[in-house]
Design a protein around this nucleic acid. Structure first.
Length: 577
RNA sequence: GCGCCCGUAGCUCAGCUGGAUAGAGCGUCGGCCUCCGGAGCCGAAGGUCAGAGGUUCGAAUCCUCUCGGGCGUGCCA
């Protein structure tokens, strides 16, 4: 298997003569802005600086010194750039073979010694699973798959919110008003109703919150009491209800260790901080001062009533994960509005000089906004107001929309319901992972139910077209048989598709590094676009035998790349739709 | 008040950590199925990259300020 880019890097380095490490680092080959310039380009700016020469001059010298070979056709200087062009046959062979033989980066990389903990989804299970939970869930699940693809050992953790005040409030509500049969009928909906009811009642009668606090204290006492029993009951019911959305999204966890898991691991944390002499009393609470880190608000580890908080549990979780998983990174896929919380968490860890502090990374994401029809402004969802949108409703709508289109366009499709589920759910997931993580997402039914243009179905459709061609051909499934005797020169006109496919590896690496799945989502759109264009102009099945064989190999490879990429972001590929 | 995030085409967004002529989708307008799937393809119109300074060979990208929008700001998570 030939890696063209690596080969080119070596050739460039050789052409430049002796290179010190700094100059070697300055060799960043990247796709040119405009494909007409070349297949890949080198901007000579940094290199010129290091060599104390003008960029155009360095570019001209490099281009002149560069000899074409079996893989590289040409090197041309264009101002400060050198534009390289791969030999078409080499390009096609390199990409298609790598893909079909499942070589990295298209296939999973060999195991590395990196261990990554990803804390994601982590819903507060005393609340309904609504659109707001979708983001953490799909981003986190995508990051798990991406890192695994790159050979890391991944520990995907669902850090359930099954402890603390929100849970105590739900407990209080259920103890007061709970009806078993209503809960059984529709757990998600009923808990939501209780949640809203509690919110309204607490607004009028603040003593309700005090009652909840007392229940929490009783729960945290560790005794086997009514609170403990209720906690267990509600936790089990919630988990059951949550499994539905997780199954539909195809999301799994390696560990489901909620906040309650750390119940017996918080005391040691408090003792550790006490021993370090950084835990001080303030207004009856035990806090860690963080002014030296530029954080004005101290971090409270124990409330004045003696109970613990989010921070206390998160610290216990960090220490636990450090010990159990020896992670190189711990990612927290949590909303951007909790940025301060994680800054505090890191600072509190640094306060006692624990090196794990540098491995803790908050992976923030934007809010989901709803359009306020009256003001015309985009606003944060007010779930306490009772207008939350349940994830299941959205998925159902999308699936129904897809089902309708299938009925119109492909009425004979076998298994239409199953396909509609994949495409509908895929559309929602894809839509969520399409844009940069940190930006707020405007919840818009028309965007959710769009299946044309930059959408999941657009990419799935490209895959289905490829699958359809393969189905109608007699192409062997076995890669060796498929690749045998292919004349790669015949794929000259597929360069745009191939060059885009070539970006797959860097895209996955970047997505992992920046915790940004949208890098992959956007590449999938580009690859799908190239395929749609290519198929319009180049017929496969009717082509002459030699050409047909070459194109079938390309089709199989393109289909595989789409399926892999979609798989990484959690969208299913379909052969028919 | 202070801190952080965002501001790119009518709308929704890309723009690979400073590089070549700022790109897509939706919408609008105009083309394309006797041909492997039209959930598609090709084209047109549409820009003071919020504004003003600065840094340098070069800025949508980095720095400062201003204006908009959002989030956060000890006993919730």
């Amino acid at each position: 298997m030939i890696d063209l880019k690596t080969h080119l890097e070596h050739r460039v380095a050789a052409a430049l003569g002796d290179l010190d490490p700094a100059q070697r680092d300055a060799l960043s080959l990247m796709p040119p802005k405009n494909r007409e310039h070349g297949d890949i380009a080198l901007g000579c700016f940094q290199l010129a600086k290091l060599r104390k020469a003008a960029p155009p001059q360095v570019a001209a010298e490099l281009a002149a010194a560069f000899e074409p070979d079996d893989l590289i056709e040409s090197a041309e200087a264009a101002g400060p750039f050198v534009n390289f062009r791969y030999r078409r046959a080499a390009l096609a062979q390199s990409i298609v073979e790598s893909v079909l033989r499942d070589a990295a980066p298209f296939g999973r990389a060999a195991a590395t010694d990196t261990s990554i903990v990803i804390d994601f989804s982590s819903p507060n299970i005393a609340k309904p699973f609504h659109m707001g939970h979708l983001r953490s869930t799909v981003i986190g699940a995508a990051l798990c798959r991406i890192h695994r693809h790159l050979g890391a050992t991944v520990h995907g953790v669902n850090h359930l919110g099954d402890w603390g005040m929100p849970f105590a409030k739900m407990m209080t509500a259920y103890m007061k008003w709970g009806e078993r049969d209503k809960l059984d009928a529709n757990p998600m909906r009923y808990m939501f109703d209780l949640y809203v009811r509690y919110g309204k009642a607490a607004k009028e009668d603040p003593s309700l919150d005090e009652e909840a606090a007392q229940h929490f204290k009783a729960l945290e006492s560790g005794e086997e009491n009514a609170e403990r029993e209720m906690w267990r009951f509600l936790r089990d019911e919630s988990l059951k209800a949550f499994q539905g959305p997780y199954d539909r999204l195809g999301v799994t966890f390696d560990h489901v260790t909620g906040e309650s898991f750390y119940e017996d691991k918080m005391q040691p944390v408090l003792e550790r901080y006490e021993k370090a002499g950084v835990l001080v009393e303030s207004d009856g609470a035990d806090v860690v001062d963080l002014k030296e880190f530029g954080i004005k608000v101290p971090c409270i580890l124990r409330k004045s009533d003696g109970t613990t908080l989010y921070h206390t549990r998160d610290l216990a979780a960090v220490f636990y994960r450090e010990q159990e998983f020896d992670p190189t990174r711990i990612l927290y896929v949590v909303g951007a509005e909790q940025k301060l919380h994680f800054q505090q968490l890191v600072a509190v860890l640094e306060k006692i000089g624990d090196p794990i502090a540098k491995r803790v990374e908050h992976v923030p994401f934007g809010l989901i906004l709803a359009l306020n029809e009256e003001t015309g402004k985009w606003e944060k969802f007010a779930s306490r107001g009772g207008n939350a949108i349940f994830l299941d409703e959205v998925l159902d709508e999308a699936v129904a929309g897809v089902r309708k289109i299938i009925a119109e366009k492909n009425p004979d499709l076998a298994d239409a319901d199953r396909v509609a589920e994949k495409v509908g759910v895929g559309a929602i997931v894809f839509n969520d992972l399409k844009n940069g993580r940190v930006k707020d997402v405007k919840f818009d039914w028309s965007a959710m139910l769009a299946f044309e243009g930059e959408t999941g179905p657009y990419v799935q459709y490209a895959g289905a077209r490829l699958a359809s061609i393969l189905r109608k051909s007699d192409a062997p499934e076995d890669p060796d048989a498929l690749l045998e005797g292919v004349d790669w020169k015949l794929l000259e006109d597929a360069a745009p598709v191939l060059l885009t496919m070539q970006e797959f590896g860097p895209a996955v690496v970047r997505a992992a590094k920046e915790s940004e799945p949208s890098v992959i989502t956007n590449l999938m759109l580009r690859i799908a676009g190239e395929i749609h264009s290519y198929l319009r102009e180049h017929h496969v099945l009717r082509a002459e035998p030699e050409l047909r064989n070459a194109r079938l190999a390309l089709v199989a490879a393109a289909k595989r790349v789409l399926a892999t990429g979609l798989g990484l972001i959690g969208v299913a590929a379909v052969d028919e739709m």
